[in-house]
Design a binder for these strands. Sequence first.
DNA 1: TCCATAAATCGAAATATCTCGATATACCAA
DNA 2: TTGGTATATCGAGATATTTCGATTTATGGA
Lengths: 102, 102
Amino acid sequence: MDIERSISALNNPMRRRILEWLKDRSNFPPALPGHEDLEGVCVAYIQEKAKLSQSTISNYMGLLKQAGFVKAERHGQWTFYRRDEENIQAFLAAVKDELLKT
Amino acid sequence: MDIERSISALNNPMRRRILEWLKDRSNFPPALPGHEDLEGVCVAYIQEKAKLSQSTISNYMGLLKQAGFVKAERHGQWTFYRRDEENIQAFLAAVKDELLKT
DNA sequence: TCCATAAATCGAAATATCTCGATATACCAA
DNA sequence: TTGGTATATCGAGATATTTCGATTTATGGA
């Protein structure tokens, strides 16, 4: 749990928004044919919703991944990103522990 | 609760450290004579512990104050800073709410 | 093999943050 | 009123982040 890297990743409104979008797969277009079983979302879908360049979104997803907020799964030419709920909870616990007095 | 501003304020190791130091008044030298009843800590004490310039610490405390993490109380020529526990808890709740899925 | 598509990486310009020393402001004491 | 001390603000250089378009890499299909 690298709190430094995690807070940096969160220190950007669009990255936080992406994390929120990923809470619900239905925020994005339906899964590509043959990938209906995957919970993750491909970079192109995120890019389309965020309206930022492909390279920027790829970079953002990399930062979120390094921070532990998302997991990436490569299937063919697509990379599917989804939230890492366990790590997100661990981050919240760590921030709480560092910030709270008691 | 401006989560943007708060996360920015936290996105710095020394500012987070100051927030931790302020959990316990005894992390700093004893109160100045005549101010024993105050829980806050003056800028000079924080500066001495942080080993950064006076202007930097003044700036940092201003950012932490704008973010709602600390309260400032002026007494004579001194400004005493102390944690705002209520706002800190509100921030944690807000981050949890934004970040957590359920 | 060759081409098309998805994603990652590179290089760079614009903007923001960090941090300082110098200066300004506020306040106290003589 | 004058001088001293504490803090805030200003201006600037160094560094980091943001975001892009161009390029590279990986993969799958004709």
